[in-house]
Structure formats: C-alpha cells, structure tokens
Design a binder for these strands. Structure first.
Length: 264
DNA sequence: ATGGCTTGCACCGCAAGA
C-alpha cells in the first residue's frame, strides 16, 4: 500500500492538480495539509468520483487538513480524531483515522515564524502536546504513521545551505530536539531508511528562483512506528508537481508498505 | 541582499507562509 502526504497550499487552487496526481499515482492514502477551506467547502464529490473517501478538519482561510483513502480500504468512522486531544486550539492542524488497520495521523505543524516569537513558542507547545498524546496513541495503535508538513528540517543534510540556515526557523536546535523527541517515541523517518539522492528536498520558496537553484528544505515527513518501518520497502519524493504551472511550494512524499510483511 | 512569490480577504494593501 502507498501512503502519501502533500501540503497543497490551498485545495481550492490546487484541486485540479490533486485530482491529476491521484489519477496518475493511485496511492491508497493521501494526507493533505493547508487545505485553507471550511468543511462546507470541502470537495468530497470530486474525490468520490475517483473512488476516494475523505475525512477532514477544515478551517476558513488558513490551515486545515484532510485524509483521502481509496473506498476499498477498511475504515472505521467512529475513531476519527480532529485536533490533539486535550490541547485547546482553534487552528485545524491534525486529523487521525484508522485505515486498513493502520493509524494514520495527518499533521500540519505550526510554521513558527522565528525563534523567540510567540508563534515559535506555540510551535513548540503544539509539538509537546502532540508528543504527550502520541505516547498513549502509539500503545493503542502500534501500527501508526505520522505524516505531514512538520516545518522542521531534521538534519543538515535536509537543508540546502545548513550554515546559513543554522539557528533560523525550520532548522533551529529547539526544533531539531522536538523532532528527536518524536523519534524517541519509536518512530522512524521513512525517507532515511533508504539510500536517497543528495540534496533531496520537499519545499522550495516561491521567490528568488529557489527551485531552479534547488535551494530547498526537507520539511515534509513520514514517520513510521516499528512494525510499519520494518515493512516499508520504499520512500520517495515526487518533485514533478513543483514544476507544474501554479504549483504548491511543497511536493508529495510517498511511502510504500508491504502489508503482508507487517507483524503485530 | 531580510527581498524575492503566492494565497486569502478585503478592499484598492494587508497578513501569513517557510
């Protein structure tokens, strides 16, 4: 089964691209972030026409997350969770659902703006709350995937110019430590389970020809619990949608899991 | 070079993203 994540930076603008991409790739599960629309505006019918069901936590203008899954996949609508339980937050940044027996968490981590700002403090608090909740969630659901836009580059190898970026938002010690705390729960960065091209990134700034210069960062991730990591056979970044007209600044990350290889 | 682009909203420029 193929699990993918993509920050689309407005599902209204990017819907044709998401439809084209799904039609071409037919992934089993697709997590979307920054859908930037209310629940009433969610284009469920367009995805149903492609045989995908949707669960979503929408918000007018900002944030918003969704999970699309092929209708053939088993799904229990009673255990869908929106937002981090116990963390009071009007911003819609997390949705969780169980698909084919796998707990899929679709997350849009706060941007953080800059270390020292209120937004940065909120980013760290949000991750802290996520960590605390995940401690229990991973026991309840040992087969768990945390996928989304983390707004964190975990290591120097994930940054186009680590000397310039060191200490800045997205690549600061506090954020790297927060990422490490998530990994310490027993989650594995699927992308780094395999040999990858150097300078592999998932986001390029719209400005200053960042894509042309490959001046990007790897900030979108798929973290897998041990049983899933052991059954993961591939993890790739699909850079092609970044070259399409009117692209999102992020591109999809895809992990392929051999379901017959999962134990536990 | 602290800009540069893109989005949404609400106006006729602004905030926010990363």
């Amino acid at each position: 089964m193929k699990f993918a994540t993509w920050n689309v930076n407005s599902l209204k603008v990017r819907l044709p691209q998401v439809v084209d991409w799904l039609t071409a790739h037919r992934v089993d599960v697709l997590c979307l972030q920054e859908i930037k629309l209310s629940n009433a505006q969610f284009p469920s019918a367009e995805f149903e026409a492609l045989d995908y069901r949707s669960v979503y936590a929408g918000q007018k203008s900002y944030n918003g997350v969704a999970i699309l899954a092929r209708t053939a996949i088993s799904f229990d609508e009673t255990d869908v969770i929106r937002n981090i339980p116990g963390f009071n937050d009007p911003q819609q940044r997390l949705i969780a659902a169980t698909l084919a027996g796998i707990r899929v968490l679709c997350a849009y981590f706060p941007n953080g703006q800059a270390p020292g700002t209120d937004k940065f403090a909120y980013k760290l608090e949000w991750i802290d709350a996520l960590c605390n909740w995940l401690t229990k969630e991973i026991i309840r659901y040992p087969k768990l995937a945390l996928m989304g836009d983390y707004n964190i580059a975990p290591a120097a190898v994930d940054v186009c110019d680590p000397f310039r970026w060191e200490g800045l938002n997205l690549f600061s010690p506090d954020e790297r430590a927060a990422f490490a705390r998530l990994c310490a729960l027993g989650l594995v960065d699927a992308f780094r389970c395999f040999a990858q091209e150097e300078k592999s990134y998932t986001w390029w700034d719209y400005r200053a020809g960042a894509l042309r210069r490959n001046a990007g960062l790897r900030i979108d991730h798929i973290l897998l619990s041990s049983p899933l990591a052991a059954a993961c056979v591939r993890c790739t970044i699909d850079k092609t949608p970044r070259r399409w007209p009117q692209p999102s600044d992020h591109v999809p990350v895809i992990a392929e899991i051999e379901m017959s290889g999962i134990d536990g």
